[in-house]
Design a protein around this nucleic acid. Structure first.
Lengths: 256, 256
DNA sequence: CCAAAAGTGTTGCAATTACACCCATGC
DNA sequence: GCATGGGTGTAATTGCAACACTTTTGG
């Protein structure tokens, strides 16, 4: 994961131009929604956005350009809100978007004073391609664009209720994440490059939603052979200083 | 799975009406493609369609109506080509559809003498939602509509080369199928309601692509507790007559 | 009666789970 | 010095893989 200044946060002018012209450069009735997971203080976090001036919370999302691959769109959308590039992303499901017809999107744009044609497709049914992203919590700079009051981390089990079908999408994303936990990449991208064994264990526990045995966990991780112990230990905490580890293979998405 | 007369095979008139009017009732730039799997003579089969008058093979697909859930669209598309309703269906991935811009779709409609506007979205990029279906081979009546010369079963490893991104989609469908083989539903829907243990085993072997041990397989299946042995045996074959089994729970999609 | 497929049970290995003791550190 | 968390090894269990003999059937 590389942090760069977010290249282009949506401004009011962008938004006006979108409905005036840019809308035709996008695939109509298609949206890409992204559950961004981070890990901090033993808790699994998710990045949420509050819509400007409304009591609506959702996960980051965006439209797909007509010549843009889905994965590229996911990366672009993610970069806007996190400042990160080449994040670990995975498509997990596509949602019909039919229970979302009552979305107060029209009122939202009216409140902002943006002219939107009554039959514009962003006001209608949106088929949503769901992605989840695993990011290093500390490297993310949550960025709210013109449409948002706030963009911030919340505990996945301690957060505002999400609008539209985003409760379902988040639920589904967590299940997909759980299913792919056996691959090393999950830990590799959710943790800083150097981490302790208890940290890695609490991450797994947060994703799986149950406690694990300390000794068995350590054995399993080390037997897998993809992490290595460093000479250094983590100082400063109370109690015995734990060893630091790092993933052996180049971490996916790290800068070259 | 219920067999009914296919309610509506696409006719020439339907096709003309689609481009004249019905196209606006569908979600633009979105297609739903379906890998239909069957099992026969120890072989995993897939249902393929040859485009009328062209050397193009693909899996069944279709467009999604504006008020139609994705699962419903998949069921509808499937019913057209197989005559089956309430088939075991599973969405597995959504494809960008960008490598398919060179599709000879324009020539196809020209050959058929159907007027299609040059900028109509079915000629452009199509994001494809991929489903796979598991069906009882013997109950399927493959039906070719007006756009197709033939609709027929082929061995998944002994078939024409597929056009567009359908090779990738089929590949991906097989992997998704393999991953969900541990759930009983796979066997339950690919086999007739009564089957023998060797039949079930050969099905699993076909999906997994490797041989399994006869004794361990039988133990595992019976321990799972979802199939039961019937008093009857399958007669007529050479050699010792094998027992018949059936799935315990009501098979998904069976008529009430 | 014989070839070929179907039915059954046991044994060994590997992976997972359970569990107890010692060590280091900050207060 | 003591409470708290971190580091390590061993025994028990469970699940999976390997394996051989008997039974049935048609020809």
């Amino acid at each position: 994961m590389t942090r760069r200044p977010a290249p282009h946060l949506l401004s009011r002018k962008d938004l006006e131009r979108f409905f005036a012209r840019d809308i035709d450069r996008h695939i109509p009735h298609l949206i890409l929604d992204c559950a961004v997971f981070g890990f901090h203080n033993s808790d699994l976090k998710v990045l949420l956005i509050k819509w400007k001036g409304m009591n609506i919370w959702s996960m980051p999302g965006g439209y797909v350009r007509k010549t843009e691959p889905l994965d590229a769109a996911a990366n672009r959308i993610l970069q806007v809100h996190t400042g990160l590039r080449n994040v670990h992303l995975r498509q997990f499901h596509t949602f019909s978007g039919l229970n979302t017809s009552q979305r107060p999107v029209k009122q939202f744009y009216a409140k902002l004073g943006i002219r939107v044609p009554a039959d514009a497709w962003p006001l209608k049914r949106l088929v949503a391609v769901g992605y989840y992203a695993l990011v290093d919590f500390l490297r993310v700079r949550p960025s709210a664009d013109y449409m948002a009051d706030t963009c911030a981390w919340y505990g996945v089990d301690d957060r505002p209720r999400l609008a539209f079908d985003h409760e379902e999408i988040l639920q589904s994303a967590r299940e997909a994440l759980r299913a792919t936990l056996d691959v090393p990449s999950a830990g590799a991208t959710l943790l800083p490059s150097r981490f302790t064994m208890p940290e890695l264990q609490r991450l797994h526990e947060a994703i799986l939603g149950r406690q694990l045995d300390r000794r068995n966990f350590q054995k399993k991780m080390l037997d897998r052979g993809d992490i290595e112990r460093l000479a250094e230990r983590r100082r400063g905490g109370a109690h015995r200083a734990p060893f630091l580890y790092r993933f052996r293979s180049g971490r996916a998405g790290d800068p070259l």
